[in-house]
């Protein structure tokens, strides 16, 4: 199966930061580290839109390509992870990432997380799944527990979807069909390529 993806439905996102906080909570990321952020377009004006952004776990992840220590790997499910023991905190990946996902805490303050930190799709990292070691370096491994990213699971309006690409595309398609309107799937094409993007619904959905 299982090509894991994110999809944020801008028609639903209300900029409540539930996703951001859920992530903080789940992984106890320190002050200053935001694996996820909420971005607003046209703030305060008619047409204002918000979207929630994190590492998109790109199909062709630029971070992987630029990392001088080759610390990135990609799981069978398409989740892009990295080994913090190899990370030298150089910041190349940050410059390469179109989403600004990699985070660099001030060194020294936060132990292991002095290294680059980013969204793991709640899949931990290359330590024993569910171990203290993994938790301290990468946060919780929800995927191994049979759960999905907490940011999406807790999203206040179910705007943010995370999981198997086919499943979440289907959820989105159903919604879009009902409202007769897609939504800006911002970042989707850039991260995953043009194929498999959920069709914006045809006009004339249920009114």
């Amino acid at each position: 199966m299982a090509r894991m993806k994110f999809l944020c439905d801008s028609e639903r996102c209300i900029e409540c930061n539930g996703c951001v906080t859920a992530c903080k909570n789940e992984h106890e990321t320190p002050w200053g580290i935001s694996r996820r952020r909420v971005v607003t377009l046209g703030d305060g004006k008619p047409g204002e839109k918000t979207i929630s952004v994190a590492c998109m776990h790109c199909s062709d992840a630029p971070c992987m390509a630029v990392c001088p220590t080759d610390c990135f790997y990609r799981t069978d499910e398409g989740v892009v992870l990295h080994d913090k023991d190899l990370c030298i905190g150089c910041g190349y990946c940050f410059y390469a990432c179109p989403f600004g996902a990699p985070q660099f805490p001030q060194a020294g303050n936060f132990g292991q997380r002095g290294k680059m930190d980013k969204c793991t799709f709640c899949a931990g990292g290359p330590e024993k799944d569910g171990s203290d070691e993994e938790y301290k370096k990468y946060g919780r491994n929800r995927l191994a527990e049979g759960k999905l990213p907490l940011c999406a699971e807790m999203c206040s309006t179910k705007a943010l979807l995370a999981g198997d690409a086919d499943v979440i595309s289907e959820i989105f398609r159903e919604r879009a069909l009902r409202r007769g309107k897609g939504g800006e799937l911002w970042g989707w094409k850039q991260a995953y390529g043009a194929d498999g993007a959920p069709e914006p619904a045809k006009q004339g959905g249920k009114t």
Partner: peptide, 18 residues
């Protein structure tokens, strides 16, 4: 790698709304 990074960087300013 840097070139790749640069390409992406260019995109960053073009596409990333923030």
């Amino acid at each position: 790698k840097n070139k790749a990074a640069a390409t992406r960087r260019a995109r960053l300013t073009r596409d990333v709304p923030m």
